[in-house]
Nucleic acid binder design. Structure first.
Lengths: 250, 250
DNA sequence: TATCATTGCGTCATATCGACACAATAATAA
DNA sequence: TTATTATTGTGTCGATATGACGCAATGATA
């Protein structure tokens, strides 16, 4: 979808949008996917609108398929942003959409209520792709996120807060790590999300006690130092833990 | 608001609605507030629409003020329900609204996306009040909830699931109990929400360890048997626990 | 072959948890 | 007035979990 759709008015539901906070993990850092707007050069969260016969979930999947090339992404709505003044499109932004038809101009000018989703994706599999309004789509680590468009910074922060809370009672990692991974890699993921360090040995004991991991016979070779064992997620138990919670916090 | 508004089309945002699952606690039972629709006599969740200059939170507060007489209610959005076919108003329901203007008929006939809120209120303070579409508003305990209108049963179940999850890492009770309460009362609340019994002595040890309670010098008199101490919530710590979580689950 | 950061596996004192005992109390019945 | 009985306040005890740390094995690099 690098083309402007025929008519927003005809295609999409009024006043509704969605914004996605897409998390990836790379180089021991938590990253988010951002777009750079063509004209204002502001950075923004990937987002989109809801077609007249779509659910929000389907719309978000569609948007993320376009931005990352990935289907079947872990997606979760975390909040509706509906403050009447949350997002006054300034003239520059409105200009940027490159729309001439009066109906579309009007459409972009209306009040938008946005549903926030966060997504967890395998960094190495995603292929960031800009949309019609942006000229760049790329990963940014959390500390290099500049001021974002509209209220997108608030949306990002709320997503991060939600993710950290979920970490206390839900398993995580399946969607962020490759199929096979080492214990230090998993630990680094937790440390990155939580923003603090954990004891290596206690982390292992605890995460293993949840029964969501299968220890493989293979080890990861190639790196320096002692080669660590590889693990994979035990999907059956992982799903169960997603439903029922892990019980206990870090 | 027992009057039909002048024109839905003019007053409210298109395709958007909200539904509230209002929990109260009485007679050692968890109750929800339901409306009985005038014509179909189906039961439904209290709900409403969003005015053109309102946020969802403000709209939900307004609706609950109308249904319960209470302001400053504990309210939390828990999910957006946006399946395209989630709520086909059947002819009888559409009939029931008692609307003649063509524009309004059209308005009610459109696809609605609803934001689900749950609310926790002090049962003894609420004054259930029906709206324009209903002839009865009353509390129902969870096991006597009949089939509900549209997808309201799904909404209710999701709210309950969310509430149970929150119980694992957030304090609860301030909004559901009177200012002063006994330990057995608080325990009963937990047991009711969780749907299982807890050990009296372990419950007390645990809940006290969170530091969200002030033990008062008074005891509750009047009942039979040994008179229990009264407690109140320590609001400062309660708020803190709401933000940071309690750490640990039941 | 030595070095050294990293990994696997373990120990130990302490805190917490679940199950239960027992005395104190307050209305009610005898 | 006294005994009864259900309920409440408080404490114990063993099992389990947690946090802090030790030490040997490993594998690329010097």
């Amino acid at each position: 979808m690098n083309q402007k759709p025929d008519s927003y008015q005809e295609m999409f539901l009024n006043h509704l949008s969605l914004d996605c906070v897409v998390f990836g993990f790379h180089d021991s850092q938590l990253k988010v996917l951002l777009l750079r707007m063509k004209k204002t050069r502001e950075w923004a969260l990937p987002g989109g609108f809801v077609k007249k016969d779509e659910s929000f979930e389907v719309a978000a999947s569609r948007v993320l398929k376009e931005r990352t090339g990935l289907g079947d992404i872990f997606l979760k709505q975390f909040k509706v942003f509906s403050e009447p003044l949350r997002a006054k499109w300034n003239p520059a932004v409105r200009d940027l959409v490159g729309i001439k038809a009066d109906t579309d101009l009007e459409w972009f000018d209306q009040r938008f209520i946005s549903v926030g989703f966060y997504a967890l994706v395998d960094f190495s599999m995603a292929e960031p792709t800009a949309d019609f309004f942006s000229d760049l789509c790329s990963w940014k680590s959390l500390d290099e996120v500049d001021p974002l468009m509209l209220d997108h910074m608030q949306i990002l922060n709320k997503a991060l807060e939600t993710l950290r809370l979920q970490l206390n009672y839900q398993p995580i990692g399946y969607n962020l790590l490759p199929d096979k991974f080492t214990m230090p890699e998993l630990q680094k993921l937790y440390e990155t999300i939580l923003g603090k360090e954990l004891d290596r040995r206690n982390f292992q004991r605890r995460i293993l006690s949840y029964g969501i991991l299968n220890k493989l016979k293979e080890r990861k070779t190639g790196g320096a130092h002692k080669s660590p064992f590889l693990y994979e997620f035990n999907l059956e138990n992982y799903e169960k833990a997603l439903k029922n919670g892990l019980y206990g916090g870090w």
